[in-house]
Amino acid sequence: MSASLLDQAPAKVAPARFRPLDLLPHAVLVLGVLLLGFPLYMVFIGATWDAGTIARGNLPLTPGPLLLDNLAHAWTGTGGERVMHTPVRVMMWNSLVMALAIAVGKIAISIISAYAIAFFRFPLRMVFFWMIFITLMLPVEVRIVPTYEVVAGFGMVDSYAGLTIPLIASATATLLFRQFFLTVPDELVEAAKIDGAGPLRFFLDVLLPLSRTNIAALFVILFIYGWNQYLWPLLVTSSGDMDTVVIGVTKMIGTGEAATDWNIIMAATLLALLPPVAVVALMQRWLVKGLVDSEK
């Protein structure tokens, strides 16, 4: 496939004439990268010096010697001048559990509901479809108070269950899978029927493998969505042991009397960045592969 495309590519591309205007998009892009990259760079620099240097307000633009120390302190939750904070190790574990549970849960629930809506005829099918569709208009922020009521009623406050379950239902993912399922030709379903595959077999043997690329794409998006949750974890967790890294890092910022260990916070921030970056980096390669030898 890719080989034949390469074969057909013109052997020689005529050299494009240089036009000054071509520089503009590049300039815009470079500016964008700098704007995005500079704060990240400052985080990195901050994580390499001691708290005093940052507090004095003359942070150099070159890395200092303390990166590993700061990372170690953040990771274990010791060594700051301030009151002890929850170790970043614990926070990251909480974040990881939450992000994975949300991503996997959302995918599992929505692929099953999309399967029902797209392939089965049952009474009130369209009613259910529209009910799911309408929940798009009710994001967490809108229904946060009643949701908290319910979660508290079930005694799930300050637990992984309370942290993740209310965020798992996903209309977006359901609709996405439904759209994909509608493109699966009827004949494929019928061929499977004649081969003797029941609904469950068809789902596991045919539909799930065909959805691989969609699942991978959704996983990336949903993992980051889960990792970055702020409002809901802030509300539903109270003990330090349940802090996610996004919450925990903000808690590390002092409120006035106490000194703020900015170097440790920056180190924690660096650590917090790693899992989403890793997921994107790893899955992106997989995604591209999935798209290249697409079978549909």
Partner: peptide, 20 residues
């Protein structure tokens, strides 16, 4: 009877092969 119980096999216009 269900298709699988009819002891038939079918060839479709668009082949309907399992792509994966």
């Amino acid at each position: 009877l269900e298709p699988k119980d009819r002891d038939i096999a079918m060839v479709f216009q668009n082949y309907a092969l399992y792509p994966h």
